Amino acid sequence: MTTLTFIQPDGSEKSVAATEGRSLMEIAQGAGVAGIVAECGGSAACATCHVVLPQDVFDRLGPPEEHEEDMLDFADAPREPCSRLSCQVNVTSDMDGMTVRVPAA
C-alpha cells in the first residue's frame, strides 16, 4: 500500500493509506482531508480539489492538459508552478511517501 501525506494550510499533516489507481481526490476525500471539496465530483469542472505536488512528481507526470490548466486558473488559492487538480492525478506505487500540500483557499 502507498502512503501519502497531506499538509494543511496550518502546517498540520495527515498521513493516509492510498490505493494505487485511485485519484488523489478520491483518496483525500475518503480519508477526510480538509480542503479537498471536489464540488464537481472529479470531472475536472471546478478547481475545488486544487493541490500542490512536489516538483519531482509534477515533472514525472508532465504538465496538466489544457482543460485542467483552464480550471486551475479559477482556483481560489493562487496557482503555483506545481499546482494540479487532485482529481486528475492517479496514485502510483512510486508516489509512496509523497507529500501533497493543500492550498489555503
Rank of each mutant, 00 (worst) to 15 (best):
residue 47 A to T: 04
residue 49 C to W: 12
residue 39 E to M: 02
residue 43 S to Y: 13
residue 50 H to S: 09
residue 42 G to H: 10
residue 36 I to C: 07
residue 40 C to R: 13
residue 50 H to V: 04
residue 28 A to W: 01
residue 37 V to D: 08
residue 52 V to C: 09
residue 51 V to G: 01
residue 26 E to R: 15
residue 40 C to W: 00
residue 48 T to M: 06
residue 52 V to P: 02
residue 43 S to K: 13
residue 29 Q to F: 00
residue 46 C to M: 10
residue 47 A to I: 06
residue 33 V to A: 13
residue 39 E to S: 08
residue 55 Q to F: 06
residue 35 G to V: 00
residue 34 A to S: 12
residue 57 V to Q: 07
residue 33 V to D: 11
residue 40 C to G: 10
residue 34 A to N: 05
residue 29 Q to G: 04
residue 46 C to D: 11
residue 57 V to T: 10
residue 30 G to E: 10
residue 37 V to L: 14
residue 43 S to N: 12
residue 33 V to T: 08
residue 34 A to I: 10
residue 26 E to K: 12
residue 53 L to T: 06
residue 49 C to G: 01
residue 28 A to L: 01
residue 54 P to V: 06
residue 45 A to K: 14
residue 43 S to R: 14
residue 38 A to G: 11
residue 35 G to Y: 09
residue 30 G to N: 05
residue 41 G to D: 08
residue 40 C to H: 12
residue 55 Q to H: 13
residue 49 C to F: 11
residue 54 P to E: 14
residue 33 V to R: 11
residue 45 A to T: 08
residue 54 P to M: 01
residue 31 A to G: 05
residue 28 A to N: 09
residue 42 G to N: 02
residue 45 A to Y: 05
residue 36 I to E: 07
residue 44 A to Q: 14
residue 49 C to D: 15
residue 32 G to L: 06
residue 33 V to C: 03
residue 25 M to I: 02
residue 43 S to F: 07
residue 45 A to V: 08
residue 49 C to E: 10
residue 45 A to E: 15
residue 31 A to L: 08
residue 32 G to I: 09
residue 34 A to R: 04
residue 51 V to N: 11
residue 36 I to H: 04
residue 46 C to N: 12
residue 45 A to W: 00
residue 32 G to A: 04
residue 52 V to H: 14
residue 55 Q to E: 15
residue 35 G to E: 06
residue 31 A to P: 02
residue 38 A to I: 00
residue 40 C to V: 02
residue 46 C to L: 07
residue 45 A to L: 15
residue 42 G to R: 13
residue 51 V to D: 05
residue 48 T to H: 11
residue 55 Q to R: 15
residue 51 V to P: 01
residue 52 V to F: 02
residue 35 G to D: 10
residue 55 Q to Y: 00
residue 37 V to A: 13
residue 26 E to G: 00
residue 45 A to R: 15
residue 25 M to P: 02
residue 26 E to Q: 15
residue 28 A to C: 06
residue 45 A to D: 06
residue 27 I to V: 15
residue 56 D to W: 13
residue 56 D to A: 15
residue 30 G to T: 05
residue 34 A to E: 15
residue 37 V to R: 15
residue 34 A to F: 04
residue 35 G to Q: 02
residue 37 V to W: 09
residue 29 Q to Y: 01
residue 38 A to W: 03
residue 47 A to F: 11
residue 27 I to L: 00
residue 54 P to S: 11
residue 48 T to R: 09
residue 47 A to C: 12
residue 50 H to W: 04
residue 33 V to N: 13
residue 46 C to T: 12
residue 49 C to I: 09
residue 32 G to Y: 07
residue 31 A to N: 12
residue 49 C to Y: 12
residue 44 A to D: 09
residue 37 V to M: 07
residue 29 Q to W: 00
residue 47 A to E: 08
residue 41 G to W: 06
residue 43 S to D: 12
residue 35 G to P: 02
residue 25 M to D: 02
residue 37 V to Y: 11
residue 36 I to A: 04
residue 36 I to N: 06
residue 39 E to R: 03
residue 41 G to C: 04
residue 52 V to K: 14
residue 31 A to F: 02
residue 50 H to K: 11
residue 37 V to N: 10
residue 54 P to D: 05
residue 32 G to V: 12
residue 36 I to T: 11
residue 47 A to K: 14
residue 47 A to S: 15
residue 39 E to G: 03
residue 44 A to N: 07
residue 51 V to E: 10
residue 50 H to I: 06
residue 41 G to M: 03
